[in-house]
């Protein structure tokens, strides 16, 4: 923190390493130094975590993810006190032009009705899949805030009231091509970016990713980010089991 620090920005859980940051503790640091705290809440959704209640000045959501939930509309939101949100409305919407289309707003509004029901299933299935992955000898590491072994599991438990979300990261004991081969053998989990959709999605972040230097050691051999969807968790586990039998390992 410096005298000219105006803003602290965090994501929790974070993309793509599901790092957990303590919103209440960081908001105290921000406010003691006259700075604002913005928290990207996309991985949690308001069902699991509400940063405004924990002291964040600005909460950011990609509505494209859990809040719409169906993978068919894009949107975003910023939430907080009116005096801050009015400034964003005037500058970022009216003058930068980032307005949402009425049709997308309507789709997201319809999707958001079932947010709590979907989040319950995302939370439950991701916990099951993460626990399963931990038992496999082919798996190099699993990162999920709901696991006791996660570095900040206790902080996650304190600030995520209903669960830990549907996103996890893991790596295999294999090389670059082995990771890609594994994805090519999946039948249920789809090889695509984004998260929070009804269907499960997986993306390989290779060992040449430009931000490798910022991640923990376990992420540096290449890893997957997986968004656990609303399929039956047993089918997702079978999909992973079958791909591990068929993929081309080193």
């Amino acid at each position: 923190m410096k005298t000219n620090t105006r803003l602290i920005h965090v994501e929790t859980p974070s993309n793509p390493t599901v790092k957990i940051s303590d919103i209440a503790a960081i908001s105290e640091i921000a406010h003691a130094n006259g700075a604002l705290l913005s928290v990207d809440n996309t991985f949690a959704s308001p069902y699991n975590q509400r940063p405004y209640e924990l002291g964040a000045d600005l909460t950011i959501e990609s509505l494209t993810k859990y809040i719409n939930g169906h993978g068919d509309a894009m949107g975003g939101a910023a939430l907080g006190k009116k005096e801050l949100i009015d400034q964003i409305r005037s500058q970022a919407m009216v003058n930068l032009g980032g307005a949402i289309s009425p049709f997308n707003a309507w789709l997201i509004m319809r999707g958001a009705v079932t947010l709590p029901l979907r989040m319950r299933q995302h939370n439950e299935s991701a916990q099951k899949v993460a626990a399963f992955l931990q038992t496999l000898p082919q798996v190099r590491f699993v990162a999920y805030p709901g696991l006791y072994g996660h570095k900040n599991h206790e902080t996650a438990q304190r600030q995520m009231q209903n669960g830990f979300g549907g996103v996890l990261a893991f790596g295999l004991n294999t090389d670059h091509d082995g990771h890609n081969s594994f994805v090519s053998k999946l039948r249920v989990i789809t090889n695509a970016v984004s998260l929070g959709h009804d269907e499960s999605l997986i993306v390989f972040l290779g060992e040449n990713d430009e931000r490798q230097y910022l991640y923990g050691d376990e992420f540096r051999g290449g890893f997957f980010r997986v968004s656990i969807g609303l399929e039956d968790a047993e089918d997702l586990i079978s999909d992973i089991k079958n791909a591990l039998l068929a993929y081309k390992t080193v």
């Binding site: 996309t42 949107g75 975003g76 009116k82 949402i100």
Partner: peptide, 10 residues
């Protein structure tokens, strides 16, 4: 939260 602005993407 007291207020919200919805925009075109995250």
């Amino acid at each position: 939260a007291p207020d919200c602005v919805a925009l075109s993407s995250g």
